[in-house]
């Protein structure tokens, strides 16, 4: 589904701030693959996501999604087939617009005709949105006329997830999307994520700082450091791996201990 072929990106080339954020990164995901990515801050995880979504164009290499070369596609064209969730729950929804209006925008991706520009939200669609909201089990289906700004962070992130997957994307990018939520809400959003991904067999990449999640979710685990993918495990080998093994791998490949409390303390 997704093929990343020796992609490199250097920020601020030729200045003192020059930073090689991605260095010959190659990665291939099959249909329905769900890979988790771990790595310390500045390892290039978010940069990799931004390269896929098209926030910037890569310096070299190719990005192929669903058999289509999207290396030089514009960001808004790519986002038709890419679902992207950020760590910050405020980034995924428009606060001054109602839940219904936000969902209608997400649904816009499905339509290819230009007539859709002047169409309004139909009763049919409203019913469909209500149905999907009720799956969240957060009571949002009765608040469809309220601005999204009134929702809590967890509710907003759940809504964003719903919006990102309303039209099944070719790939879903989750950038630590539960990290800013309280533990109970995070679990709920995560369970929902797993459910949607499994039901529709969505190909997914997920950044996490939680070593337990990194091994328990999905079928592959990647480790990034300094713009490289330094460790890659899947299948039987991954099943046998414990959190301590993963931390050990981190020490070997990155050459230092993980010093992030969040990673060490999470179970």
């Amino acid at each position: 589904m997704l093929v990343i072929d020796s992609v490199s990106k250097t920020f601020h080339p030729g200045t003192v701030n020059e930073k090689k954020a991605l260095d010959q990164v190659s990665l291939s995901l099959a249909d329905g693959d769900f890979a988790t990515i771990v790595g310390s801050n500045g390892a290039g995880k978010s940069t990799l996501f931004n390269a896929i979504t098209g926030s910037f164009y890569v310096d070299e290499g190719r990005i192929i999604l669903g058999g289509e070369d999207i290396t030089y596609c514009k960001e808004h064209t790519r986002s038709k087939v890419i679902g992207h969730l950020f760590q910050d729950p405020l980034k995924g929804t428009a606060p001054h617009m109602t839940i219904e209006e936000n969902m209608a925008l997400a649904y816009l991706r499905a339509s290819t005709s230009r007539h859709a520009y002047f169409s309004r939200i139909s009763t049919n669609e409203k019913e469909k949105f209500r149905e999907q909201l009720s799956l969240l089990d957060m009571g949002l289906e009765d608040r469809m006329k309220q601005p999204v700004g009134l929702l809590s962070g967890g509710q907003r992130q759940a809504l964003t997830l719903l919006m990102a997957t309303m039209v099944t994307p070719r790939i879903l990018l989750l950038d630590e999307h539960t990290a800013a939520l309280d533990p109970a809400t995070a679990d709920k959003v995560l369970a929902l994520t797993e459910k949607i991904i499994a039901e529709r067999n969505i190909t997914c990449l997920m950044v996490t700082h939680n070593m337990h999640q990194a091994l328990s979710l999905g079928n592959r685990t990647l480790m990034m450091d300094d713009g490289h993918i330094v460790f890659h495990v899947s299948g039987e080998e991954r099943k046998k791996l414990s959190i301590n093994d993963l931390l050990e791998q981190f020490r070997i490949h990155v050459g230092k201990q993980l010093d992030n409390d969040r990673i060490l303390l999470s179970k």
């Binding site: 979504t53 926030s55 960001e75 808004h76 064209t77 986002s79 038709k80 890419i82 992207h84 950020f86 980034k91 995924g92 929804t93 428009a94 925008l105 997400a106 816009l108 991706r109 919006m163 990102a164």
Partner: peptide
């Protein structure tokens, strides 16, 4: 951010 992530 939302706009850029939603094909607008």
């Amino acid at each position: 951010h939302m706009v850029r992530a939603s094909s607008i």
